[in-house]
Amino acid sequence: MEVNKFVEFREKVLENVGKVIVGKKRKIDRIIVAFICSGHVLLEDVPGLGKTKLARALSQTLNCSFKRIQFTPDLLPSDLTGIYYYNQKTMEFEFKKGPLLSQFVLADEINRATPRTQSALLECMEERQITVEGNTLKLDKPFFVIATENPIEQFGTFPLPEAQLDRFFMKLSMGYPSYSEEIAILDRYKEKDPLEELKPVITLEEIQYLQKDFVYVEVKEEIKRYILDVVNETRRHKDIELGASPRATIALMKGCQAYAAIQGRDYVITEDVKSIAPDVLSHRIILKAGGRTLGDKSHEAIEDILNNINTPLEEI
């Protein structure tokens, strides 16, 4: 395993996406981690903070085919997967591809679609395949979904149930830019949109190597036990009604491996766990007395666990 390839990948992505998105390096780091782990990301934030710009910039940087789907209540599963239609010229049935047969998919306002349509997307995310009229088609690799939802406007929405939220590797929030960052945004977008001139800087071979080899980052026994202690504590915490699942445990370990690799290490340390855990676990728990309506309280509950749980002594 060549750690320098992971570091170079991170630097190239940050530099290229940084031509379009001001700041947000920490958020982009997290998305890089999810992408390396072949996971998917849910972005929950108010409109106008650059979620779509970020997705487009990432897809162009990674040289991936890109489709944006605007989720609405009348959207059908076949609108995502595609349909078979009868071609009168050839007198045969042909398949018309849907937007899910792309490498990079932006599912905009996913909570506006009906549960049936949401399920069609989430099945593709998990199985990496679609089934249309009994025929199964494998999706191209890499296959990466960034879904967005607006936490403020709830009229006409269908909230994602817990089992579907658990399919997302991470849940992130962009947040408002600082004063100086917003000045930089005004300067950058004064004359033209930098996204129009953004060039790919990553090859498919690089992506394949990273997604295949990050698993060779060492996770010592005490780190595995620390990860499990953190997850187990979500099942016992006084403010948490429903704790994280075993899928969350696996996601946290893999996220730590990818995060360690892009930091230039071939081994995981406890700081990796502390850094990644809130973004991997916060959407996989339900709080008592109000559940998800408490917003950032889920993040705070995970931070509380990390602050109070014993950290293993490491000998690296």
Rank of each mutant, 00 (worst) to 15 (best):
S38M: 12
I285L: 02
L198C: 08
F66M: 12
I185Q: 03
C64P: 00
V41P: 04
Y85A: 09
I223F: 09
I36G: 05
E92C: 07
T293G: 13
T117P: 05
A34E: 07
E303V: 13
Q211W: 09
I262V: 04
Y226M: 11
I305E: 09
L281F: 04
D79Q: 15
F155P: 00
Q164L: 09
V268Y: 01
K53S: 12
L122K: 11
N232V: 12
E233N: 11
G39R: 07
D108C: 06
F6D: 00
I302R: 08
G23N: 13
I183N: 03
L160N: 06
D187E: 15
Q208F: 11
N310K: 14
H299C: 01
E221F: 09
T270Q: 13
G290V: 10
P151K: 02
N87T: 10
D187Q: 14
L165F: 03
Q263D: 12
M253W: 01
T311K: 15
R10E: 04
R292M: 13
R235K: 13
S245L: 03
L58F: 08
T61D: 06
E2Y: 06
Q70C: 07
K212L: 12
L75A: 11
Y176S: 06
D108M: 05
Q60F: 03
V231S: 08
K27V: 15
T270E: 14
A251Y: 02
E181T: 00
L210N: 02
F143C: 01
S298T: 14
R167G: 04
T148N: 10
T203G: 03
E300Q: 14
V217A: 07
L49Y: 04
Q60W: 03
L43D: 01
E315K: 13
A248S: 10
K51H: 05
C256T: 07
E241P: 07
Q118Y: 07
A258D: 06
L306I: 07
V46F: 01
K138F: 11
F104A: 12
G264L: 04
Y84S: 13
L195A: 00
Q211F: 09
I32V: 05
L62Y: 02
T203K: 12
L75S: 10
K224H: 04
P278G: 06
S78N: 15
